[in-house]
Structures are given as structure tokens and as C-alpha cells.
Design a protein around this nucleic acid. Structure first.
Lengths: 133, 133
DNA sequence: GCCCCTGATGACAATGGTTCCCATGGTTGT
DNA sequence: ACAACCATGGGAACCATTGTCATCAGGGGC
């Protein structure tokens, strides 16, 4: 499987630009809407395809919210987790070396191989909690 | 909010019985199929409703697999996480007091309130890894 | 045990996020 | 510029899940 270089299309650039601008996580549909409002309309299928390609290339992170929707965000490289505000989507990347070791240790102790884990922290950030009073 | 006692119907008992018998996680559709094969046919809507009720009552745990499907399992009470085999679904409950404290501490440090977290470990159990060779 | 009220059921429609299909158009190597 | 071929987009298809509503049955009251 020789990795073919993806073409540099207007749509691909537009999707990447949105992810550059956004701070928190956003769904594919939200990104599609933002593109429409910017006048840089891109087909919904294309948004999905490009997001999936970026995930495959490990250039963005994806996670599911409680509703099962997939959210995307441009993140730093390397393994990390997220502290996400339920209200505004603001996201803080967190590293947890201890947790990584713990998870691997638990799996190893039970004879599991090819181990991966998911860990996300959800809460309400200070600003949103204050404005909700 | 006075909790009304749910009625003791054949369908409710049948769904609970399946969860009693199963060891690992199963999707609503799988449980529906098992019921059909047992001859204790139950409407799909009813399966979903009863599973949701059991989740609300904290009598079973629910989590999403990579495909976004919701999986259900009868678990011990109290907060815990899961080590799940991708191949056979075998599940081991794990407690991680250190992780709990770490997650809460991280959230607190950033001023987040009303904090929750998700943590699941996926891997291939020894038996499945051996049979895959 | 029998009735009746009311919540539970189930067949089907509807929803919503995501993926598939395929004719068309734009990109890139030459 | 040319041509080959990948990317696009609009709509249909998919699939898990939820909603609708007429019908059914559990269980409290008698």
C-alpha cells in the first residue's frame, strides 16, 4: 500500500482552514455549516471524506460525544487526552503518563495484547459555570 | 420526582435474563436476536426501552464501541472501568482509584466543575490472540 | 377471582448522522 | 496544453435509535 499524495483542492484547504481557526471540537455537520456561511461551500460528503483522511493521517483527533456524534479537532501531535467543556466546547489537552502506564499494566496483567484505551474528561469550565448562575 | 415502580412484564424479565446470562457487552440488536432465537420474541422498541430504563436505574453499564453502537452489560455496582476484548467481548472490570483522583485533579486545576470521565481499555485477550495465529 | 385504569408493548414510520454511488469537473505529471 | 485519474457533490442508501399510537396486559381495588 503506497501512500498516494492527496490532491491540493480548494475544498481540502477550506476544511483544513476551519480546523486551524477553531479551538474546540466540532462535528462534521458544524464544519459544513461554517463553510457555507463563509461562502466557501463544500459538499457534505467531501467534508466527511477530508475529515476522515485527516484522522487517518493522525493530523486531527476525533472523539464521540454522548449523542454518538463524532467531533473533530486539530491537536498537538503525540498521545494525549482531553478536558472538554460540555457547554462551550473549549478543550484543554492533558497528558497522563501515569494513566498510560496504569492502563497498559492492567491489560498486561490479564494477558491482553494490542492494547489501546480511550480517556476523556468532560465538565463545565469556569466561565460557563459562572454565566449559568 | 417519585420513582414509579416499573411493571413486571414478560418482556422486562426476558431482557434482564439475557443480561444475567451474558458475560461480555452486547448491543441492543444482538440482545433482540438472542431473544428471537430463544423463542421469547420481544419487540425491538421494547428492548431499547428496557435497556435504557436499566441504564437509568444504574443496573447495567453502557458504552459505545468504535462503530458508535451502544453496548450493554450487567456489572457490579459502583464506579469502575472496563478491559474489553475486541474479538470475543470478554470483559474484566477494573477499578482505578489513582486515575479517578488524577482526572478530578486535572479538571479542578483548570476550574472545571460537574466533572465526569470516560475510560475504557480495549485489547485482544490471550485466548483470542492465540487462536488468531 | 374479576374489573378497570394505566402503563407497557410492538409494528411501523421517522429521524439523523454517516457512507455509498457515479457522473462531472479540477489537478497534476508529462 | 493534454490526458489520465482522483476528488467532488448531490442524492440515495444505510443503520442504529427514537417516536407514534392503537392495542394489550399487570396489578391494585373490590
Amino acid at each position: 500500500m503506497v501512500a498516494t499524495t492527496p490532491r491540493n483542492t480548494r475544498q481540502r484547504r477550506a476544511v483544513a482552514a476551519i480546523l486551524d481557526d477553531l479551538d474546540g471540537f466540532a462535528s462534521a455537520q458544524e464544519i459544513h455549516d461554517i463553510l457555507r456561511h463563509r461562502g466557501e461551500s463544500v459538499g457534505l460528503s467531501t467534508v466527511y471524506r477530508n475529515l476522515q483522511a485527516l484522522v487517518d493521517a493522525s493530523e486531527i483527533d476525533a472523539l464521540r460525544n454522548d449523542d454518538g456524534e463524532v467531533l473533530y479537532r486539530q491537536c498537538s501531535t503525540g498521545h494525549h487526552h482531553h478536558l472538554v467543556c460540555r457547554a462551550c466546547g473549549r478543550t484543554i489537552e492533558v497528558a497522563g503518563p501515569t494513566v498510560e502506564r496504569w492502563a497498559d499494566g492492567v491489560a498486561d496483567k490479564h494477558g491482553f495484547v494490542d492494547v489501546a484505551h480511550t480517556l476523556e474528561i468532560f465538565g463545565t469550565c469556569g466561565a460557563c459555570a459562572a454565566s449559568a448562575d
